[in-house]
Structure formats: C-alpha cells, structure tokens
Write a protein that binds this DNA or RNA. Structure first.
Lengths: 105, 105
DNA sequence: GCTACCTGTAAAGTGTATGTTTACACTTTA
DNA sequence: TAAAGTGTAAACATACACTTTACAGGTAGC
C-alpha cells in the first residue's frame, strides 16, 4: 500500500447525484425536502461547493440505507486530496519529521 | 452489521496521547514543536476540546508513519457519536425516511 | 525557599465552513 | 405564456480550528 490517497477522488455530491438520486429519479428540490435541508444547500452539496457534515452523513445513511461512514469517508478522501493539492500545505507536511523508526541507529 | 457506530469511542487525542506520545516519551510541548502547532492547540487536541483537521491528519501520518485516514476515521467516529448524542439531532435524523427499498409493494 | 520546566486553559482575534432566508436569472416543458 | 426545476449570489448566524498572549498550578532540583 504505497498510496492511500486517491488520485482526484470525486466529491461526495457527485456520488450522491450519480449513484443515488439519478437512479431513483429524485431531483434536487425533492432531495432537499426529503433530507430536510434547503434547496440552495442541497445544490451546493451536489455541485461540490459544500461538504458532507456529520449530521448530513447521518441523514444520508438513513435515507439510502447506507453507513454514515460511507459518506464521511468520501468527504475525507476528497478533503485529503484537496489538502495535499495546496502548495502551502505540501510545504508544511514536507517539513514534518518522522518520530518513529528511530531504532537501529 | 447492525451498528456501525461505536459506543462511546475515544476522541483522537486520547489515542494520540496513549498510543503514540506516551510510548515514545514525547510530552505536549515537544509534540507541538514536532507537529508545528502551538502548545495550546496541541493541548486542546489531546484533551478532546478540538478535533483533527485534514491537515493535522496529514501531519500525524507523516510523524507516526500511519495513514491519514486512521486519524480522520477516529475523528469521524467520534463526531458521529457526539452527533447522535444530541437530542435535537436524534429528532431530526429520526424524521428522515428511507428512499430505497420501495420494491415489492 | 527559589527556580526552571511542563501543563492546562482562558480571552481575543482570524480564517474558514456549514447552513439559512431571500432573491434573481436561466432553461425546459406543457 | 406559465410553471417547474435549477444554479447561484448576498447577507446573516453559528461553529470550529488555530494563533498569540497571558495566567495559574504542579513537579523536580538547587
């Protein structure tokens, strides 16, 4: 396992739209109602402008009979990727030194 | 798999302290330096008053040779548990209806 | 005693993010 | 034309990670 960070993972809203809403023919307005969020918020999630909160993950798990972790994992992989794609963050992380594996010296 | 939400999971700071810092005899001040955060922030993380951000997860994975997901998963399980332990959130989630499994009717 | 060090935490401020309400513009379809 | 669905912007409330600064308490050594 060399690289646990996906390469350009989809944002959770893309998965939600393609794999859950569209197959069930649920539009944005209806999804917002069923999940008890506003339509602008639902739109922002589906278009990747906002992330999946823990509460939203619980709602999705209830609505689609999944685990809440599924949605949080999608979110986290997306977050990690965007975190790593910042030059400033790369610099910071690159300067962190390993604190283990000091054996055999 | 009936219940994917742990019962009273530890906050990530507890794991960090007990399983990583203490075995290596690294104190709070030193950990803050190595991970490039302030001591108050490090203390807040270790005492569960603040969570693990994606960037912090990356730093921890670098320092302790783990996956960043390890830390984010700890954080998420903790978040889900605290989310579910709010009466208001329970009410909200309880009112979400399942959108699948409408077959055979 | 005094000093040095480690620790916890509070206050104030910054940046960022989710979420709401409201409103406007665009497209498609009946 | 009218209705419905959609994207998105502005303004606002709220929350959280994080910083700087400061203060108080504990512990170990002189």
């Amino acid at each position: 396992m060399k690289d646990l960070i996906q390469h350009n993972p989809p944002h959770p809203g893309e998965v939600l739209l393609n794999l859950y809403l569209e197959p069930l023919s649920i539009n944005v307005t209806e999804a917002a109602e069923k999940l008890m969020v506003t339509r602008p918020n639902m739109s922002a999630i589906l278009n990747g402008r906002t992330g999946i909160s823990p509460l939203m993950a619980m709602k999705l798990s209830k609505a689609f009979n999944t685990s809440p972790q599924l949605w949080l994992n999608l979110q986290h992989n997306y977050d990690l990727w965007t975190t790593l794609n910042s030059k400033e963050n790369k610099r910071i992380i690159g300067s962190i030194k390993t604190l283990v594996l000091n054996r055999k010296r």
